[in-house]
Every structure is written in structure tokens, then in C-alpha cells.
Amino acid sequence: MRMDKSGAAALGILGPTSCPRLAAGVRLTFDRTRENWILLAPERVFMLDEVSLEIVQKCDGATSLAMIVDDLARNYSADRDEIELDVRKLLQDLLDKKVMAI
């Protein structure tokens, strides 16, 4: 099994030091027709709500999962564990759909 630099399995399991980023060929863009932010992937479109947009915008390939969660918990004055669970769910779903990479 291949491992990424964070020690997480390369199959898409997020570790605290994983640095998620958009997968090759995926763009974050504002769709004027839908008046909404979307992830545009080959032959697929993913609509983003405000929270998922904020999470995806932080996924620059340099910022770790732990740093993303800490920043969101601080910004929303929310329980860090709850934020982490929500962020992991979203990012794992996007990883499974090959829209995100680590």
C-alpha cells in the first residue's frame, strides 16, 4: 500500500497532516447561470454551499487538514471535533469522487 507524505494511505484516507488540493483537471469557479460556486470536473459539476466553499477554498495543497479544521473552529467558535468530523466527511466524499487529491 502506498503512503503519502503524511503517512496516510494513498487511497484517500485523510490524516491530520494531509494537505488536500483540487485534483488535476478540477476547477473552482463561479457559475453565473446558477449564481453559485461550483467545482467543475471533467463531465461533472458539484454545487457548493457556503460552508463547503470555505472548506474547498482552504484546500491549497499546502494547508494541512488539522490547520483547516483549527481555522474553521476558530472562525465559527465551534467545537473542533464536530468541525473535524464535518470537514473529513466532505473531503473524503470529494476524494472518493476523484475531485480532491492529497
Rank of each mutant, 00 (worst) to 15 (best):
P42D: 13
A24F: 08
R88W: 03
P20C: 04
L28M: 10
M100R: 00
A73S: 14
A73C: 07
A24I: 02
D60F: 14
L90F: 03
T33L: 07
A78L: 04
R34G: 07
K98T: 02
R27M: 01
M3N: 11
K97L: 15
L28Y: 00
N75D: 15
A10H: 08
A101K: 09
E84S: 05
L94Q: 04
C19N: 08
D49H: 11
E43N: 02
G7S: 06
R21I: 01
V45G: 05
W37D: 03
D96G: 14
D93Q: 10
T63D: 01
V87T: 07
D96N: 12
L85P: 01
Q57N: 11
W37L: 02
V56R: 00
L53S: 08
R74F: 09
A41W: 04
L72K: 00
D49K: 13
I83R: 01
V56P: 00
C59Q: 02
S52D: 11
I68A: 03
E54G: 13
E54T: 12
D86R: 00
R80N: 01
R44K: 12
A101W: 07
A41M: 09
T29V: 15
C19W: 04
E43P: 05
G12V: 03
S18W: 02
T17P: 02
A24R: 05
F30Y: 07
M67H: 13
A23H: 07
S18Y: 09
I83D: 05
S64M: 14
K58V: 04
P20T: 01
I55C: 07
R80S: 09
F46D: 08
D79C: 10
A10I: 01
P20S: 04
K98R: 09
K98G: 05
W37F: 10
A8V: 06
R27C: 04
V56S: 05
L22V: 01
R74T: 14
A24V: 06
G61S: 08
F30P: 00
D93S: 14
A101G: 06
V56T: 03
G61K: 09
D86T: 15
T29P: 01
G15W: 11
V69A: 01
V87P: 03
R21K: 15
D81M: 11
L65F: 12
L14F: 10
R34V: 02
E43G: 02
I13S: 06
R21Y: 04
G25S: 01
A62K: 14
P42K: 09
L11N: 08
L11E: 09
S18I: 03
K58I: 10
A8R: 11
I38V: 15
D96R: 06
L39P: 02
R27T: 02
K98C: 05
M100Y: 04
A10E: 08
L22F: 00
D86S: 15
V69W: 12
E43L: 12
L40C: 00
L85F: 09
S6T: 08
L48R: 04
K58G: 06
I13D: 00
E35K: 03
A66T: 13
A101M: 12
L11I: 12
L91I: 05
L94K: 00
N75F: 07
N36H: 11
T63I: 12
A8H: 10
W37H: 12
R80H: 13
C59M: 07
T29Q: 15
R2P: 03
D81C: 07
S18A: 10
L48M: 06
A78S: 12
G15L: 07
L53E: 07
